[in-house]
Structure formats: structure tokens, C-alpha cells
């Protein structure tokens, strides 16, 4: 059963210039369905349209055409649906003067569903910090945190309200090799133990092939191909499949 449906989605950016605006394609006629319980990877080069499609899904930008349905509803307009989504942006930052516990407390209070007893709230914060491996740093100000720790706290805020769907934009970006492995293990744990559907974008083929059940290759602002795990495990490598999809677009001079 699809929990996310991109329906013929198009986004054209209007970039302000000195005297006139310039149009730049974000994503073009993008249609895709993501099923409940899946880990789905969006794979593409920089500027191919991965982030644009995620931002459209989250209602951060408005589509030029088409629509996105999340749990059967329009995410941009429905607060009830929004409360079922967790999101980790590509660039994560938190006020350096606050501790992870304080930050999670604030996010919890914004969510209307989090109107619960204080001891329950604190217990959930403790549990969430344990899941992301930040138990020992819960009372420390985030100013001294490493990139990996900030990323983990980003995940914590995204899963704290127990979402059904987790949307992650380049989650391994800027992490060291150990951080990448830990992030991968965390994804698998969230998907298998908490049954969270995960949609993430990446330009790292190695990462995408290790965790995804299915992958969409985006190039030139268009969806080029959808692949299942069986295709890259039993046939050609994901790298080969990706290059086969992307190179003709690059050769044609399209913006990828």
C-alpha cells in the first residue's frame, strides 16, 4: 500500500536576476509511489532534483504542477499528516546553547499529540536519545558536538514523535566512515524495529545499495528508472545501472 504518491509533480524555480527572472527546472513530471515499510533511496547527481522532490513532499515549497499525497492526503495542508512525518534536512543545526534534552522538549511541545505527562515525556526523550546513541550527551550543550552527533540529534527530533514516515535528505553527508556505518545501522534498526517507512536522498551509490529496498534514479530533473534490490544484487551492479541511466542525459547536455 503506497504511503507516499508523487503524481506528475513539476517544479520550476523562478530565480530573481538584475532586471528579469530566470527559470530553472527543479523536477519535471515526477511520478512515484513508495510503499509502507520500505526503505526507498533517491539517487542522483547534485542538482538532479532529489532535494526538490523531498521539499515538495514536505510542503516547504509549492509545486508548479501535479501533487504529492502522503498517507492519502496533501501533506502541505494537513497538520494531522505532518505530525506523522519525520524530517532530517541536509544541513542540520541546532542552537548551540541548548542541550539535546531541551531541544527535544521544544519539538515535542510543538506537536499537539505530545500533550502528555512530564514523566512520560522525559522517559520518551531518554528512550529516543538511547536509540540514536546520545544518552551520555543528553545534558551537554550542542555547541561542542561533532557533525555525527548533530546528525544523530537531527534523527532524534525526526523520530521523537513516532512518525510513520521518515524523510532524510543526504543523511550521510559530511559524516566520517564510522559515522556513515552507524547511520546505516540506525536506519535499519528504525525500519525493522519501529516499522518506519524511510525515504532518503543520496548521491552515494555505496550507501544507497546497502540499505534500500528500491531505488529511483533521477537525472536531468526527471525520473529515469526505478530499480529493486533484486536487480542490483542478482544482475548488474547499482553503479553500472546508475551510470547507464545518467550518462545519456549528461551527453545530451541536459542539466543533471
Amino acid at each position: 500500500m503506497p504511503v507516499i504518491e508523487f503524481q506528475n509533480l513539476t517544479k520550476v524555480y523562478h530565480l530573481a536576476g538584475f532586471l528579469k527572472t530566470r527559470q530553472a527546472p527543479g523536477i519535471d513530471s515526477f511520478s512515484l509511489e513508495i510503499n509502507e515499510g520500505e526503505i526507498f533511496g533517491l539517487l542522483g547527481l547534485n542538482g538532479s532534483g532529489k532535494t526538490t522532490s523531498l521539499r515538495l513532499l514536505l510542503g516547504l515549497i509549492r509545486p508548479t504542477g501535479g501533487r504529492v499525497l502522503v498517507l492519502g492526503s496533501d501533506s502541505a495542508r494537513d497538520p494531522a499528516v505532518r505530525s506523522r512525518l519525520g524530517y532530517l534536512p541536509e544541513t542540520v543545526s541546532f542552537p548551540g546553547t541548548l542541550t539535546p534534552r531541551e531541544i527535544l522538549r521544544f519539538f515535542a511541545r510543538i506537536d499537539a499529540r505530545a500533550s502528555q505527562r512530564k514523566d512520560e515525556l522525559e522517559a520518551r526523550i531518554t528512550e529516543t536519545l538511547r536509540i540514536v546513541g546520545l544518552s551520555a550527551a543528553g545534558e551537554r550543550r550542542t555547541a561542542g558536538f561533532s557533525k555525527g552527533m548533530i546528525q544523530r540529534l537531527g534523527i532524534a527530533q525526526a523520530i521523537f514523535h513516532q512518525p510513520k514516515i521518515l524523510v532524510l535528505d543526504e543523511p550521510a553527508s559530511g559524516l566520517d566512515p564510522l559515522g556513515i556505518v552507524e547511520m546505516r545501522e540506525l536506519f535499519l534498526k528504525l525500519n525493522q524495529e519501529l516499522k518506519i517507512t524511510i525515504l532518503f536522498s543520496s548521491h552515494s551509490i555505496g550507501e544507497v545499495e546497502k540499505v534500500s529496498h528500491r531505488v529511483a534514479i533521477i537525472a536531468g530533473s526527471r525520473l529515469q528508472k526505478i530499480l529493486t534490490k533484486a536487480e542490483w544484487q542478482n544482475g548488474q551492479s547499482l553503479e553500472k545501472l546508475f551510470l547507464d541511466a545518467v550518462r545519456p542525459i549528461q551527453s545530451a547536455g541536459a542539466h543533471v
Binding site: 514536505l58 510542503g59 516547504l60 497538520p79 494531522a80 505532518r82 505530525s83 512525518l85 524530517y87 532530517l88 534536512p89 541536509e90 544541513t91 542540520v92 543545526s93 541546532f94 542552537p95 519539538f107 510543538i110 506537536d111 499537539a112 537531527g154 527530533q157 525526526a158 524523510v167
Partner: peptide
């Protein structure tokens, strides 16, 4: 501009 915590707020019911 930084796209920092503000995006995480805007995907909430806020």
C-alpha cells in the same frame, strides 16, 4: 537561509 532547525519546525503542525 541556513535551512537549519527552522525547516524541522515547518514540517511539524506549526
Amino acid at each position: 537561509r541556513k535551512g537549519s532547525s527552522v525547516e524541522m519546525f515547518f514540517v511539524r503542525p506549526l
